[in-house]
């Protein structure tokens, strides 16, 4: 049962920020697909909800003058999945979006909620990490920019200060132009499931099949989504042979800090990292052979 003490809605971003500065106990709700589950589980006590769903200025996807891709935090996964700009510019983000939940959930769940919720299994997180995404956070007191990589503080913990809202997710042109990517969501079901492991890779493929700018990010391999710097460094400038890919997979395991739980053992998750990172890279390289990017 939902124990809702109070419910308010924001009319504009400024109003929202003002409200939040005056109501530190208010719980921001966007699509509500994480918040309401927590309330139902009794993981949250009596809640004062503050809905930002009506803020049109926080929705949508656009390319800014400098060529960066700007994602409004209230953009739903269904909008991402059907977005023509992303389809051309960052198709791997669409892969991540369609791996999320099912149609009903994708229609209401937002990418901002996915990130701010801080879950290690968030399906958009590995890809946004691999894209070096930057977050714009705003409160009544002002605005700051935080790389997504620094936003995750621990399991379920993010660097969101009281009164602050996520107002934009930015992917700079140098981080996606010319890149090819692939996302593998390894789960027990093909829909409506939490990832056992999420692997997102991005790379450029130079003449002769030489890899450059390889970025590898993992979900559910450590307490937070992580990048794999050792594997990335090793991959730089190498041709993507089977042996190289295998080595990259092994090195990626070093960045994993998996734990054994009843959902999966540490050993199995690590094995999956070693197995799926090369598979994802192979797929990314395969698409590099075909599609043109803008």
């Amino acid at each position: 049962m939902f124990n809702i003490a109070k419910y308010d809605e924001a009319g504009s971003l400024d109003e929202a920020l003002a409200f939040l500065s005056g109501h530190p106990a208010a719980k921001v709700i966007a699509g509500g697909t994480d918040v309401l589950i927590k309330m139902q589980n009794g993981k949250m006590g009596e809640a004062e909800l503050f809905s930002i769903r009506g803020l049109a200025e926080l929705t949508g996807i656009k390319r800014t003058a400098d060529g960066a891709i700007f994602l409004g935090p209230l953009t739903t996964f269904a909008q991402i999945a059907g977005d023509p700009l992303l389809q051309k510019a960052i198709p791997v983000l669409i892969q991540a979006a369609v791996s999320m939940g099912g149609p009903q959930i994708r229609n209401i769940a937002t990418i901002g909620g996915n990130i701010c919720n801080g879950a290690v299994s968030a399906d958009s997180a590995p890809t946004l990490l691999a894209l070096n995404a930057e977050l714009r956070l705003q409160s009544a007191g002002g605005e700051r920019k935080v790389p997504l990589r620094e936003f995750y503080l621990g399991p379920g913990k993010v660097d969101l200060r009281p009164g602050e809202l996520l107002i934009g997710i930015i992917v700079r042109p140098q981080d996606y132009l010319g890149y090819h990517g692939h996302y593998i969501k390894f789960a027990m079901r093909k829909a409506m499931d939490i990832a056992t492991l999420g692997v997102s890779v991005l790379c450029r493929v130079e003449a002769g099949g030489v890899l450059s700018g390889v970025r590898i990010a993992l979900g559910v391999a450590a307490p937070t989504p992580v990048r794999c710097p050792e594997a990335e460094a090793f991959a730089e400038g190498k041709t993507g042979s089977d042996e190289t890919l295998e080595e990259i997979g092994k090195l990626a395991v070093r960045s994993a800090k998996a734990r054994t739980s009843w959902r999966a053992s540490k050993e199995y998750r690590e094995h999956l990292v070693a197995e799926l990172v090369p598979r994802a890279l192979k797929e990314a390289m395969r698409t590099a052979g075909g599609e043109e990017h803008v």
């Binding site: 099912g102 027990m188 079901r189 093909k190 829909a191 409506m192 499931d193 939490i194 009843w262």
Partner: peptide, 16 residues
Amino acid sequence: VLNNNLLDYKLPTIMD
């Protein structure tokens, strides 16, 4: 019981 919900109890979906 550890997984008395349909997220953790892996009932196949139509996709499976």
